[in-house]
Computed example of a mutant assay.
Amino acid sequence: MSGSIVGKKSFEFAVNIIKFYKIFIVDKKEYVLSKQLLRSGTSVGANIREALNAQSKMDFIHKLSISQKECDETIYWLELLYQTEYISKVEFETLHSQAIELLKIIRSIIITTKNKLQKP
């Protein structure tokens, strides 16, 4: 993913999610919600990587759409962990802002790709 901005950002995000998860399970002893966050947060980049190796533009859009859903799910888990006071405002804001940025980039790429497909 060296040439892709979204690829780099999603990889960095996954690394941050993993680091957070490792600390979180030790400090908070919470394993269910944090595992959901780990799964969805790392899935964003994995699906972006798949999209970058897509077999067609439609496959590309499909893989990015999955990544978009996983990113939105990650935001949900972060919001839930914050509202239930499992994570601090600083922890929340750091990961949440990264996730929101990724979501916007992914959505923009999907829209742009769809628009290009519709033009003759």
Rank of each mutant, 00 (worst) to 15 (best):
1 M>L: 14
2 S>K: 15
3 G>D: 12
3 G>N: 08
3 G>A: 11
7 G>P: 07
9 K>V: 00
11 F>V: 08
15 V>C: 09
16 N>H: 06
17 I>V: 13
18 I>R: 15
18 I>Y: 14
20 F>N: 04
21 Y>N: 14
22 K>S: 10
22 K>I: 02
23 I>W: 15
24 F>E: 11
26 V>E: 15
28 K>C: 07
28 K>E: 13
29 K>Y: 10
29 K>F: 09
31 Y>L: 09
33 L>R: 13
33 L>W: 14
36 Q>R: 12
36 Q>V: 10
40 S>N: 06
40 S>K: 01
40 S>V: 00
42 T>I: 04
42 T>R: 03
42 T>E: 10
43 S>W: 05
43 S>Q: 05
45 G>F: 07
46 A>N: 15
49 R>N: 10
49 R>E: 11
50 E>W: 01
50 E>M: 10
50 E>V: 06
51 A>L: 03
51 A>W: 05
51 A>H: 04
52 L>I: 07
53 N>G: 13
54 A>K: 03
55 Q>T: 15
58 M>T: 11
59 D>C: 05
59 D>Q: 03
63 K>D: 06
63 K>L: 05
66 I>C: 08
67 S>F: 04
67 S>L: 02
68 Q>V: 00
68 Q>W: 08
68 Q>S: 12
69 K>T: 07
70 E>Y: 04
70 E>D: 07
72 D>S: 15
73 E>F: 08
75 I>D: 09
76 Y>W: 10
78 L>E: 08
82 Y>S: 00
83 Q>W: 07
83 Q>G: 00
84 T>Q: 12
84 T>P: 05
85 E>P: 00
85 E>K: 14
86 Y>S: 01
87 I>T: 01
87 I>G: 04
88 S>E: 02
88 S>N: 03
89 K>H: 09
90 V>Q: 13
91 E>T: 02
92 F>D: 00
92 F>I: 02
92 F>L: 13
92 F>A: 04
94 T>F: 15
95 L>N: 08
96 H>D: 12
96 H>Y: 15
97 S>K: 11
97 S>H: 10
98 Q>V: 02
99 A>Y: 02
99 A>Q: 05
100 I>K: 14
100 I>A: 11
102 L>T: 09
102 L>R: 12
103 L>C: 09
104 K>T: 06
106 I>K: 12
106 I>Y: 13
107 R>D: 01
107 R>G: 07
108 S>K: 12
109 I>L: 15
109 I>N: 06
109 I>G: 04
110 I>F: 01
111 I>P: 09
113 T>G: 11
113 T>V: 11
114 K>H: 02
114 K>V: 12
115 N>V: 04
117 L>G: 10
118 Q>T: 14
119 K>L: 08
